[in-house]
């Protein structure tokens, strides 16, 4: 249990470190180079993980046709995320960036849930508004 908690917290920290490392590389070597290397190294490691995992490559390959085509667009959204993050990361505080991204995720999630599933989570809306309120307060303190 404790290990799982540490793993979850480390997952969050790794997002921020990756974003910062990528943006410094982008400043030194250019946006395209940094984004390209992010995918080149990520691709290599994910290939290693796939090979040592218990997943059958043949089975996945056979199933690929059954997945709707739009589900494959996630990878392209990922490229946009990495590229835009490379530009923004060095410009604003890491903490505000993390929080604003979270708020963007949260309210997009609430909107998708509402229109796709007809669910409106009051807890998420209320919690989200509190996060925004705390964020605005701290931004005000910084000014």
């Amino acid at each position: 249990m404790l290990i799982a908690i540490v793993v979850a917290i480390t997952a969050g920290a790794s997002i921020v470190i990756a974003r910062n490392v990528n943006s410094i590389l982008a400043e030194k070597d250019g946006l395209l180079t940094s984004t390209f290397f992010n995918y080149a190294t990520g691709f290599s490691l994910s290939a290693v993980f796939l090979l040592i995992s218990s997943e059958s490559i043949k089975q996945s390959y056979d199933l690929m046709g059954t997945v709707p085509l739009w589900a494959y667009l996630g990878g392209l959204f990922g490229v946009a995320v990495v590229a835009i993050s490379n530009i923004v990361t060095s410009k604003i505080s890491a903490f505000y960036m993390s929080l604003i991204i979270f708020v963007g995720q949260l309210f997009t999630g609430i909107i998708i849930d509402y229109f796709a599933l007809g669910i409106l989570s009051i807890g998420k809306v209320l919690g989200g508004l509190l996060v925004v309120a705390g964020l605005i307060y701290n931004l005000y303190v910084d000014k």
Binding site: F49, A71, Y72, F77, G78, A80, M97, I100, I101, T108
Partner: peptide
């Protein structure tokens, strides 16, 4: 930054469909 959040949400949604069908490691690859 807020726009990145919007993109991440859509990305997670799409990647989630992929990993449900193919498995975590195949989809990551």
């Amino acid at each position: 930054s807020a726009f990145i959040g919007v993109l991440i949400t859509i990305m997670i949604l799409l990647n989630g469909v992929l990993s449900q069908k193919l498995g975590n490691y195949s989809s990551t690859f």
